[in-house]
Design a protein around this nucleic acid. Structure first.
Lengths: 344, 344
DNA sequence: GTTAGCACTCTAATGTTGAGAGTGCTAATT
DNA sequence: AATTAGCACTCTCAACATTAGAGTGCTAAC
């Protein structure tokens, strides 16, 4: 859809006024506040047209206009100017993330915290998706006569542990054998390769001894399976309850979305790389139909990895959110990469 | 404060009616619903007296009575009869926890999930407090030329990891030396003993080599310090927004309390063993002054450990909550103990 | 194509009214 | 002395009416 210059200008003015104040705006105020050299009647005509075309709507007959979701979409695609981030803000983001960079999880958790802080709405971040993740190392630690702990370290620096118990006495030698064999066979392999068929052939290759290890292998598979799933950190979700243009029902919807890990993770996995904006009904998840999501994938070594996102009402300062998220994503990816020393 | 039989009966009736329905109740309905063989006028007199004494109050002149916090307190201390849990519910709790018992964290997380489900309000659970926790084992895993990961396993089965980087090339031999020395020195020691003085004497005892390990020792201290802090899992917090007698402000307060880990953990650490009920202003935390908390400490091997708690409005089915929490706490402690095989 | 003018519509705030619930008090009863 | 019946009183809540104000769409003139 093409729009005449003046219509675009008016549309942008309405949307920006609404984003800033949350109030509808009418032809008269629009005439005063903008550098538009036309009368209110002309603006009225334009507004009427923009309304017919679906970009704007009136909450009621005697109110001004506010954007529709379609209007936001047009604004986001064609009208909004990218915000240039203040250097102080950039530095703040960098420092906060640097302070947390002793473990990848902490960086990622901090990313959601500062996103929420700076953008003023609920935020979330996810650990890198499992698809490119590989087994780095598997370690065993004996915890009792019949029990041991298995620690799995993935190529993206995540750690998962599992306890398992055997019916026989565990000896350090036994653990050593398992340890060596497993790491020889699995180090560098994708997590998804650690499945039942693998377990069976692996156990079989051990002959008699293989019969002793089903519990151990179950624990290994279990830990790999869980590592394949993303961890999600949320932060600032109470902020949703303070956004006065966000009705309780929508806020509840988002909170419930954030609380239901299954469908939430499914939704998040479908977000492609780069920065994505989903407005209202564009969201595939039913609980988000009245909200907007801005989500940026961070990259580790140019590989799309996890996600940093904010969720709020559709009345959103989109340019600001995009700028901040992209900055956070950049540093997050960079610091995780440095932490893992993939670089050198 | 002593109360005559009849007053107690009336007070209990008012409170139970209010807990069940959320509506105030007056002298007339009270006369009908209860086996009280007195006229409404008599009940009116009693109600007036209970109101003067501070157990009840009227939302407004022409409404019935509802309990004050003091009334709830009296009810909880003297009037309520312990609920006997249905066997099916007990079995349900046992099975859900059993399904999660491959790692202590999962048991604890599940505990909060089922508490929230069964009691119908926000719930939380914490990992065992650090005071009795000791170092079980420390492991090193090399991740790069200059980087390694340290994995700390505590006596309560919790796992923490830290990445660290050195300015020199790390060799497997070096890690082995650290590994052996550290475990020799630390295994079985309380986490709180792993502090700066320890690090200094430890490094000093290594002579020249000790100069190479400040990063490593920092990571160890860091991991121990973090393990000392409790992890908190919350669940069902959106349910607060659906409790119609819970105003938005109180709900926000609780959500904010749950989101602010520092003051939350401080509050939780002060909860003694056994089952505790805090009603309204009895709560030491300002954000909880309009809410009620029921919290039970579970025990591992007869040692008070972490906490399972529910939070909601002061209109609470206290007997039910107590029964369910105590059942969950019992199984949680039992299963964690079994997992750690402390028993045999 | 743009503008002035005007009748019209709708909201939000305010006030009014009446039904209903529950009370406290007084006087009568047991 | 405790209990009860009766009654006037108070307060809330919902429904309805009124009014000011904001903004519109339309028409006719520029």
């Amino acid at each position: 859809m093409k729009l005449a210059q003046r219509k675009q200008k008016i549309l942008a003015a309405v949307i920006e006024h609404y984003i800033a104040t949350g109030e509808p705006i009418g032809s008269k105020s629009l005439q005063n506040t903008e550098g538009l050299e036309v009368s209110s009647a002309t603006i009225r005509n334009e507004l009427a047209d923009l309304t017919v075309k679906g970009f704007l709507r009136q909450p009621h007959t005697s109110a001004g206009r506010i954007p529709t979701e379609y209007g936001y979409r047009f604004y986001v695609d064609n009208l909004m100017k990218p915000t240039v981030l203040d250097d102080r803000v950039k530095r703040y983001i960098e420092n906060r993330l640097l302070d947390s960079s002793d473990a990848p999880e902490r960086i990622i958790r901090t990313a959601s915290v500062i996103a929420s802080e700076l953008i003023g709405t609920a935020a979330l971040s996810t650990t890198p998706t499992g698809d490119n993740t590989r087994v780095h190392r598997i370690k065993f630690v004996q915890t009792g006569r019949h029990t041991s702990m298995l620690v799995l370290i993935t190529s993206s620096g995540m750690v998962k542990s599992r306890l398992f118990r055997c019916d026989f006495d565990i000896t350090p030698e036994m653990l050593n054998v398992f340890d060596r064999a497993l790491n020889e066979r699995l180090a560098g392999q994708p997590l998804s390769a650690v499945n039942r068929p693998f377990a069976q052939t692996f156990a079989a290759s051990f002959g008699e001894l293989g019969l002793l290890m089903p519990d151990m292998l179950n624990a290994v598979m279990d830990a790999c399976r869980e590592s394949l799933g993303t961890n999600v950190y949320t932060s600032g979700s109470t902020k949703l309850l303070y956004q006065e243009d966000f009705d309780l029902i929508s806020a509840r919807g988002v909170l419930e979305f954030l609380g239901d890990s299954d469908s939430r993770d499914k939704y998040l996995n479908n977000v492609p790389e780069g920065t994505n904006i989903y407005i209202g009904k564009e969201n595939s998840h039913i609980l988000l139909k009245r909200s907007a999501v801005v989500a940026t994938r961070y990259e580790i070594e140019n590989q799309p990895a996890g996600l940093i996102a904010v969720i709020g009402s559709t009345r959103f300062d989109y340019p600001k959110a995009v700028a901040i998220l992209e900055c956070i994503a950049e540093y997050t990816g960079k610091f995780i990469a440095e932490l893992l020393s993939v670089r050198q």
